[in-house]
């Protein structure tokens, strides 16, 4: 976890965008390792492939398209820093009311989760509870998720394609 914090500080101060992308990928791998420790193996797998893999490819593709790898000079910003520190302090104060880490009697373990764990074999015959909840109990969420991805894909295609066409039309007009 401390490593995560170190990488984040490096991301804040790194000016080369290429370096930032690689550091972000490293951050995702560290996050995936941490998720394995926290028993969230499915999430860790997704984070390693999507966060460290696909996101990095997208970022590198975008860097290729915008053809810049350096960002402007970094200036001191006091107001955002103060806002961030203030909000962070309030949030840390708020953790006083959260249950301690790893305790089995937190509120989060009381609701539907025990029922999922107890009944999943009988009801769905899938030993991986995460899969059964994702596909069976909360299937509508997953449907919504795929809708979001579909919409985002359409958006990306329209933005990149439409931009090209308009740019070419403007060039033709200028040459006439």
């Amino acid at each position: 976890m401390t490593l995560l914090a170190v990488v984040t500080v490096a991301i804040i101060y790194q000016r080369s965008l290429f370096g930032v992308v690689i550091l972000a990928s490293m951050y995702s791998f560290l996050m995936a390792t941490l998720l394995v420790v926290l028993d969230a193996v499915d999430v860790a797998m997704t984070e390693a492939s999507v966060g460290a893999g696909v996101s990095t490819v997208f970022l590198l593709a975008a860097l290729h398209l915008i053809k810049t790898t350096e960002m402007g000079p970094i200036r001191r910003h006091t107001v955002p820093l103060l806002v961030a520190i203030g909000t962070g302090a309030v949030l840390v104060w708020g953790t006083n009311l959260l249950p301690p880490f790893g305790s089995p009697d937190g509120v989060i373990h009381g609701h539907v989760a025990p029922r999922y764990i107890a009944d999943t074999i009988r009801e769905t015959n899938v030993p991986n509870v995460v899969t059964s909840v994702l596909a069976d109990y909360r299937g509508y969420d997953t449907l919504g998720e795929t809708t979001v991805i579909f919409t985002a894909g359409i958006g990306v295609m329209l933005l990149l394609r439409g931009g090209r066409r308009r740019g070419r039309a403007a060039e033709e007009k200028a040459s006439k």
Binding site: S55, V129, V130, L134, I149
Partner: peptide, 24 residues
């Protein structure tokens, strides 16, 4: 608890979709 895992799986995928849209 498996429930947060499921929610975050959805969140990761939605996150990469918004990232792609933002980059576009």
């Amino acid at each position: 608890n498996p429930l947060p895992h499921v929610l975050i799986l959805t969140a990761i995928v939605v996150g990469v979709a918004t990232l792609a849209l933002g980059l576009a």
